[in-house]
């Protein structure tokens, strides 16, 4: 699928902001199932951009605006060609014993541990055990965890914040894609399944049928030894196919958030975000 995404973030400051420093993770990476054909990041007030590659291999752009300003616009346009990761069917048949090698792989075991928003606490561990049941299939267990969350949690915005942890969401069960993703990560990791947080876009071909399509979206990728990473979207109960555009990944939201920054200023800040994805 050839998809074009436009993602615009606007901040309005009631009092002029200064020393506004930002890290942007909005550049779709090249992966075996995604290629980027065009990408452009525009920042106003105009300022020089720089980039680096972080620990999780995300392309990060950063900038700082020193002078006082009352508005900041971060505007990213990308065109990507996506392939369906599940074109050959679902990767079932991998037993839990296959995960033993993951502990020795530093790049993978990173995603088996606690992180800032993802906590493997006893209650979550017990819930994961219940969903797993007698199954010895890694992929099907991860998929069942996602489906369980879809069935038992409600998609409601305005209840949680960007700082809500998996434990808090586990208790009140009302939240958005970021919360679904954090809790699924915690349950997968409790079962020793390496699982990472992915931020990106979702193309909704039947407008309105999918959650999270008109904002930046998030989902889970699990690592299957010998097969690589596979995406599961607990918010929509869907495997991550060619309707999804990956932007960044990491242990949780803290590693992969699309726009992260700090500024000096005494007033309040209003944020407006628009995301649109169309098929070309």
């Amino acid at each position: 699928m050839k998809l074009r995404a436009h993602h615009r973030t606007e901040y309005l400051y009631s009092q002029p902001a200064r020393s506004n420093s930002n890290e942007i993770r909005l550049q779709p990476p090249h992966t075996p199932w995604q290629s980027r054909s065009f990408w452009l990041l525009k920042v106003l007030p105009a300022t020089p951009l720089r980039h680096y590659v972080d620990l999780h291999r995300n392309g990060v752009h950063h900038f700082e605006i020193g002078e006082p300003h009352s508005r900041l616009v971060i505007d990213a346009t990308s065109t990507v060609i996506t392939l369906n990761r599940y074109a050959d069917g679902e990767p079932a048949g991998i037993p839990f014993s296959a995960l033993e090698t993951c502990r020795e792989d530093a790049e993978v075991t990173l995603y088996q541990k606690d992180s800032r928003y993802v906590r493997i606490d006893p209650a979550i561990w017990r819930a994961a055990i219940d969903v797993k049941g007698e199954s010895d299939d890694v992929y099907l267990t991860a998929k069942a965890i996602g489906e369980h969350l879809y069935d038992t949690c409600r998609y409601v915005s305005g209840i949680t914040t960007v700082n809500t942890t998996s434990t808090e969401f586990f208790q009140n069960r009302h939240g958005v894609c970021q919360d679904f993703t954090h809790l699924m990560l915690a349950m997968c990791r409790a079962m020793d399944i390496p699982a990472r947080y992915v931020s990106g876009y979702l193309y909704d071909h039947r407008r309105g049928s999918l959650r999270g399509a008109h904002q930046s979206h998030a989902w889970v990728e699990v690592h299957l030894p010998g097969h690589g990473w596979f995406g599961l979207d607990p918010t929509n109960r869907r495997p991550v196919d060619d309707h999804y555009v990956t932007l960044a990944s990491g242990r949780d939201y803290d590693d992969a958030s699309p726009v992260k920054g700090s500024f000096m200023g005494s007033g309040s800040r209003v944020m407006n975000v628009t995301v649109s994805v169309e098929e070309l």
Partner: peptide
């Protein structure tokens, strides 16, 4: 202009 593209867009 080529320098501008590098400066503002890092491309």
């Amino acid at each position: 202009v080529e320098k501008m593209i590098k400066y503002y867009l890092d491309q």
